[in-house]
Amino acid sequence: MKLVYFAWVRERIGLSEETVDVPDHVVTAGDLIRWLAGRGDAYAHAFEAAAQIRVAVDQEHVPQDAPLGPAREVALFPPMTGG
């Protein structure tokens, strides 16, 4: 699965994207965030405010309880404002 990171998530992890093999127990977007947070200090820092993280699965915004299914790409980013 391709993961894409934006804004301070990207800055804290130090990567803009990566490809990972997600374990079978990672079923929802929230599961993915919790799994990523356990991958090391940079990830833990990036996802310390997990409830704030927004998720897009295959370029469609989803809530954290949404199933990942056969997702090819997951984007993770902080809340954004804009006009």
Rank of each mutant, 00 (worst) to 15 (best):
E48M: 11
W35C: 02
G40A: 05
Y5S: 08
A42T: 04
R12F: 01
L76V: 09
D41L: 13
S16Q: 13
L36E: 03
V55F: 04
V26C: 10
A75Y: 15
P63A: 08
L68S: 15
Q64A: 04
A75T: 15
G83D: 00
T81P: 00
V26I: 04
E11A: 07
V9Q: 04
A49D: 14
G82K: 04
E60Q: 14
E17Y: 12
T19N: 11
L68T: 14
V57F: 13
V9P: 04
Q52Y: 06
E73P: 12
T28E: 08
T28K: 01
G69W: 05
H45Q: 12
G30V: 03
D24Q: 11
D21Q: 11
R10S: 03
L36A: 00
R10N: 05
W8D: 12
A56E: 05
A56K: 06
A42H: 12
R10L: 04
D21R: 12
E18H: 02
D21W: 06
D24A: 12
L15T: 09
P78G: 10
R34T: 13
Q59S: 14
R72K: 15
Y43F: 15
R12Y: 01
E11T: 04
V62M: 13
R72V: 14
P70E: 12
E11K: 04
E18K: 07
V9H: 07
P78A: 08
L32D: 11
G82D: 02
E17G: 05
H25D: 11
W8H: 06
M80N: 06
G82C: 04
L3I: 02
H45W: 04
D41N: 13
A37R: 07
Q64I: 01
L32K: 09
M1L: 13
R34C: 02
I33T: 01
A37Y: 01
A51G: 11
R54P: 07
D41Y: 09
A51I: 01
W35L: 01
A49S: 13
R12M: 05
T28N: 04
L76G: 09
R72D: 15
P78S: 05
L32Y: 10
F77M: 09
F47Q: 07
I53F: 09
M80D: 00
E18D: 11
V55I: 09
P79G: 01
Y43H: 12
V62L: 10
D24I: 02
F6G: 00
H45I: 09
E18S: 08
D21V: 13
T19M: 12
A29K: 13
D41C: 08
